[in-house]
Every structure is written in C-alpha cells, then in structure tokens.
Design a protein around this nucleic acid. Structure first.
Lengths: 331, 331
DNA sequence: CCATTGCATTAGAGCGCTCTAATGAATACG
DNA sequence: CGTATTCATTAGAGCGCTCTAATGCAATGG
C-alpha cells in the first residue's frame, strides 16, 4: 500500500479511500492510484482490513456433507443472497461428523464471520445455543427442534401429506411408507404419513428402512416374500426410492402399473428419465435465501427474538406414480 | 487477549505462546492461561494472527461446480491431506462461471492463501499463469494443456482405452462413442477412443453429444432411426450414459443383451443398482491428495519447475456390459 | 560465593489496513 | 478584502496478534 501511495504521489490514506471507492476522491488522484495499483499488482490484504475495520462482511457456512446435492442447492441460494448484500461466504465442510463441525464453528468464529449458517447440521443443541450466543446463527434444513435458535425448514409433515394425498387421489388405498431410520426428519415424515393416511380413512403401514439405496432391500424383501406388496410406496428420500425401484424391477413388478413410488427431496436422481420419480420437493434455493435474510435481520435490524421459518414443500409428479391396477384394489 | 492475560496474571506475550502451544511455558502458567481463556470464551482473532505471522496456513480451493459429485470427492481428498499438514482449506464456488472464478481467485489472494487449488477450473490460460506467478497454483481434473502450471489429471486417453479394451474383450466389434462436446477432456477421450479402436483393428464411430443426460437424445435418435445401433456404446460421462440407457429402454433394446453401455467418472449414478453402469473411474481422492502434495513442494521444498501428474484411471465393471448377441456379430 | 548457563517471561515494535480529526486549499459570501 | 464554508487530502493512532531481543531468576559449576 505504501508503495502504491508513493508511486501515485499520494498518502496511504488516500489509497485506502480509493480501494473502498469512496466518493470523496478527485478523479485525477483516483485514476493515478488505480494505475499505480494495477502496475504493481497490488491487492488489499483482507486480514489487515478486517482487523482495522472490525468487521468482515462475511458469512460462515457449514455444510454437513459436501457430497449431498440437496445441500449444494441450499448453498447456491445462500451465495446469491449474500452476494446481493455485499457479503462473502466462506464454506467449511462438516463431513457428516459433529466433531468436525464443532471445529468448523470455531474456525469460523476465529475468522470473525458475522453470522453462521449451518446447513443440515448434526450439532447438538448445546453447541448450537453456544454458537448462537456468540454470533447470529441460523440452521437450515435440519429439523426444527432447536429451541431459541433461528431455523429455516421445509415442513416434513406437509411433504408427507402431499405424497399421500397424491396417491390417494390416484385411487390408492394400500400405501406403505419406508422410513429413514433414526433422525428428526424421518420421524416427522413418518408422523405426517400416518396423520395423512388416517385423515383419508386409511390404515398406515410404516416399515423401518434408512437413508441409503441399500436400506430398501431388507424392508422390500419382507413385503415381497409375504406377498403384501402395496399398490404404492412412499420412501423417505430419493435414494431409498431408487433402491425400491430396483427391487421392484427384480421382482418383475412394473412401475407404476403394479406399484407406484414416491421419493423425497426431488434431487437430480428423481429427475433422471430412467428413474422419472415422483418426489416431494423442498424449496432449496429459497431456504438458502431466507437463511441470509434471517441473519441479516439480526445484524442490521438487530432483531433478538428467535425466528422459525417453516416452508411448504411441493410435489413434482413424474412417471413413477399412476392409478393402481383395477384387480388390486381391494375395496 | 489483554483480558485473558490479566485474569491469568501474565503478559500478553505469554498468552500468545500458550495459544500456539509453545513448549517453553511452565505448566502452571499454561493451565492458568487456558482456564482464563475458557472462562472468558476467548478465541484468537485469525486475522490479527495472520497479519502478525505473515502467513495463513490456508489453501484456497475453487471448485468449478459445487453440485458436481465428482468434484466433491476431490475436495475431500484435498481436505484430508491439508489437514494432515496443519493447513486449513477455504472453499469458494466457481459456479461454472469463469468470471466468478476470476473473482474467487482474487478473493483468495486477498485472503493471503498460501496456495490455490483449482478443481475443474474453466479459467483461461492467461488468468491461470497470472495466478501461478502470485502464489503456488495447481489445477486438478481439467485437462493438461496449461503450460507452466502444475496439474493433476487422470489420463483420458487411457480411460477411453480401458473402456474399449473391456468391450473388445467381451467380443464387441461395433462400438460407438458419444463425445462430450467441446472441451479438453472430451477431445482427449474421443482421441483415446479412436486410437484404441484402431489398435484393435476396428473402425471407430464417434457421435457428437454433450455432457448432460439430455444430450444423449439427438445422437441416439439418429442411431435408432438409421438402424445402425452398435452392440456397445461408450459415453463421455455417466450422465450421458444415463440418457443412453433411458433411450435404449424406450427403443425396447435391452442392456446389456442388445447393447452394452460404458460410462465415465464412476459417480454415484453409475453405482445405483438401477443403473448398474460399467464406468471408467478416476482416482478422485488421490487427485486431491496429490494436489496438496504438489503445492506443499512449492511452499516447503521450494520447487520451481512445473509438475504435471497424470494418473491412470481404472474400470469399474457392472451390469451394463456383457458379450454381444451372437446374431449381431457381423464378422 | 560469584560467574555462568539456561530457561521462563515480558516489553515493545510492527504486520497492513482504516478511521478520526486535523490541515490546507479553494470557493462563496457579506 | 477578510471570514466562513466546503471539500479533498493527510497524519497518526489503533485494530489483535506475534516475534525479537532483553530481562530476571534459578540452577549449575569451579
């Protein structure tokens, strides 16, 4: 900076003003400084700036699993919203590991980020509350059972109801839900499934499965063996649904003729023509954008009461669902 | 820090030593400082540290597309290797946009990262060379035609040959390659395909396609209409292969009985049972790890000559390939 | 018992920037 | 013509930390 100032024949302070494009710099000096900077390849040191300015204009994102395309889209939403408000975004990968996430929180805090956006976090409530006391913190897309911390979610119960209602409207009465094992979302979706089924006057059947393709196997094997394959299956997520599709194929049951299948998340997998999976869709980008808005309210409008935004999912109807076969309708 | 020092009854300098766990601190003072720090919730300010220390122990990653699972795994490799050497990793998303990538480079430089790792970059050579003059820079997984810049690649020609050899060994003689449109990898894979075919005494057929599922349609439509569907298809990547599978299905051609299909990248999609796609696999994690090693050589062993590591891909054989039908073997 | 060594500890400068308050020049006004 | 007003410019302190060199103190040895 010193060097740039000398070369442009001005003071350090003036260089600073130019770099922050302050309006109160004469055009002549401005171009002189800009030229000198370009000639010297000068780039301001962000650490020094942050230190002097006592702010970073930066959000810290922790993404639970960088491999998960669902999270990727949330991050896109965050990035564009942050960008629109002049904030940068630092991404740290949680790697599905609460411990690593804890370290990531610490790193972000050391970086003096102005807010923490936790996407699909697995952090325990204690850690979450602690973080939220240090800096504005918002949790995106991982349950809503964190008291006092801002959250952005898409309602799993409504999502499940969407799936059920779609199937019921098609004429299905025998619907099985394969759940996602032991996590908040899974409990909510299963709960929503049961509620919606009962509301339609139907008996819910829920089978324990998991969140991976392979988890479909055990649950499905049972159905096939017992010859209690329903006319429709609602899976915890797209991956599980992919497993279901596969097993139905090997059992020589056609989709959607013999069995309809609904997934959840509407990822990329659901979209593959080969799958053409009807799936519940969460407004991922929107969730990211709202996360930014939520923390901005804390930073700029200094809101203090916690906010819990719960959005409504939608249903993407594709080829994996259709009316049940006549001869399989029991009542 | 001041406050911590006071509370622990020591000097600021001593607190600094403790925070960097220097060995020359007495146990008594160390615990005193640690306790004070914990009680006050003190976290060192990374900006101040970086400024004073004149180093950041941080690598800047730019990932071309955060949605691409291929890149995600490379990043995992980078992260774990960096971690093993005491380096942190800052991720910026290029968003498939060269302009945004350019800004990301600048941001990283302003953050004084000690090296730049560009994963699947779309930056032009000029920008790359400029970056590499400012800080150690390595390009991972995007062609190898960048002169003077360190690169880590997996050889596309070998990959293509792997696919061809596998199909030839199964007895195929009529093999079509659907290329990936206009990019470096595509050219290399197509080139490798032609070479390997000729080496096997076969006539290569290459059709222009693209890198998305939808791109398969046009190319495949032509084959189906002309009734020149080969006994095997080698697609530029898994996504394109997914499109091929889909179209074969609607043309009522069975895989692998009527047609064998080979993909590239061995992503997640290939692994889906429903797809069960034979695919060329690039050593993604390894590529990430080698990227770290490459920049470390520049930082710590101050290497100056450029390095170009070209790894060998492997083939993951699955259900989408098999021997050709007897009656379709022409010679 | 004093000089010497070794080690834990500290004072204070400096990292690159921004910001406040002061300076100086130029314009406007009575 | 002198004073007030405005505006571009600058000096210099300070952001929170680390690092060098200096200090003080205890232990060692002749």
């Amino acid at each position: 900076m010193e060097t740039v100032a000398e070369r442009a024949g001005v003071s350090r302070a003036l260089v600073s003003l130019v770099m922050n494009n302050s309006p109160k710099v004469s055009d002549s000096k401005r171009t002189a400084v800009l030229e000198a900077a370009a000639a010297l390849g000068y780039l301001p040191n962000l650490h020094a700036r942050s230190l002097a300015q006592q702010r970073t204009k930066t959000f810290g994102i922790i993404i639970n699993d960088i491999h998960n395309p669902f999270f990727a889209e949330v991050v896109s939403g965050i990035e564009s919203a942050a960008d629109g408000h002049g904030f940068s975004v630092l991404i740290l990968n949680g790697g599905r590991d609460p411990d690593r996430e804890r370290r990531a929180v610490e790193t972000h805090l050391q970086f003096q980020v102005e807010a923490l956006i936790l996407v699909g976090t697995r952090l325990d409530d204690g850690a979450l509350v602690r973080a939220s006391q240090v800096t504005p913190t918002v949790i995106v897309a991982s349950g809503s059972d964190h008291p006092g911390v801002d959250t952005i979610t898409a309602n799993d119960r409504i999502g499940a109801a969407l799936a059920v209602d779609h199937l019921v409207a098609l004429g299905h009465t025998d619907i099985v839900h394969l759940d996602g094992g032991d996590n908040i979302s899974s409990r909510h979706r299963a709960g929503g499934f049961e509620l919606a089924m009962r509301a339609a006057g139907l008996e819910p059947r829920v089978l324990r499965a998991g969140d991976g393709e392979a988890d479909a196997e055990a649950a499905m094997a049972q159905l096939v063996e017992d010859e209690t394959v329903p006319t429709a299956i609602f899976a915890f997520n797209d991956l599980l649904a992919a497993g279901v599709l596969d097993i139905l194929k090997s059992a020589e049951l056609s989709v959607p003729n013999d069995v309809s299948v609904v997934g959840y998340d509407n990822t990329f997998i659901a979209e593959l023509n080969h799958m053409s999976l009807t799936a519940v869709d969460q407004p991922r980008r929107m969730m990211g954008e709202l996360a930014v808005r939520t923390v901005l309210e804390r930073i700029e409008d200094n809101r203090t009461e916690p906010t819990n935004l719960d959005l409504s999912p939608t249903l993407a109807v594709r080829g994996s669902t259709g009316p049940p076969k006549r001869d399989r309708i029991t009542r």
